[in-house]
């Protein structure tokens, strides 16, 4: 009694890796490959491609892609209505183009809840575009929550830059 059962243990080791001694004890001692082996996967981002000049020329309103929101608000402010209308016209006249709208939030609060808040901002932009004739299959609204801040300092002036909807065209996402 109270002796370590070394011979039994050795027998088990010879028998195989993942077995459990027949002592009535709960299973333990999983094979180490399963326990510790972690294979690393590397993933990249997506590159961008050529877009027509009207979308990228700094003199064109269509080169502007961001709509900013007030704190806890999901309404498109009047100062951004012209911008959204311009993109709506472009999409309506160029049905081959697709747009990804990414909603963003500031860093305060739960990451997942912020995904949902950013989604409301992206959805507001999508709804405005569709009211102006853009087809549903041309636009997708998604959220990046607080994960992709354009400004990383603390405080309202920075947070305001992160409460944002970004409009990306095919090739940019």
């Amino acid at each position: 009694m109270n002796k370590l059962i070394i011979p039994a243990l050795l027998a088990l080791l010879i028998a195989g890796c993942s077995s459990t001694p027949d002592t009535g004890a709960e299973q333990s001692g999983a094979p180490v490959e399963g326990r510790d082996g972690v294979r690393t996967v590397t993933t990249g981002g997506v590159g961008s491609s050529q877009l027509p000049a009207v979308l990228t020329d700094p003199k064109s309103i269509l080169s502007k892609r961001s709509v900013y929101f007030d704190y806890d608000s999901f309404e498109i402010k009047s100062e951004f209505k012209d911008l959204v209308s311009a993109h709506a016209r472009f999409l309506a006249e160029n049905r081959q183009f697709k747009m990804l709208i990414q909603g963003n939030t500031d860093e305060r609060g739960s990451r997942e809840y912020n995904i949902a808040l950013g989604q409301k901002r992206a959805d507001a932009v999508k709804k405005a575009l569709m009211l102006m004739g853009v087809r549903e299959e041309q636009v997708e609204s998604v959220s990046l929550g607080e994960e992709k801040p354009s400004c990383v300092d603390q405080g309202e002036s920075c947070w305001a830059k992160n409460r944002r909807g970004d409009m990306l065209y095919n090739g940019e996402f």
Partner: peptide, 19 residues
């Protein structure tokens, strides 16, 4: 209540990947 794991066996066929 869980049974005390009295005789556990560790296996050593580890694949150590990128640390």
């Amino acid at each position: 209540i869980r049974n005390f794991r009295q005789f556990a066996v560790f296996c050593t066929c580890a694949v150590v990947s990128l640390a």
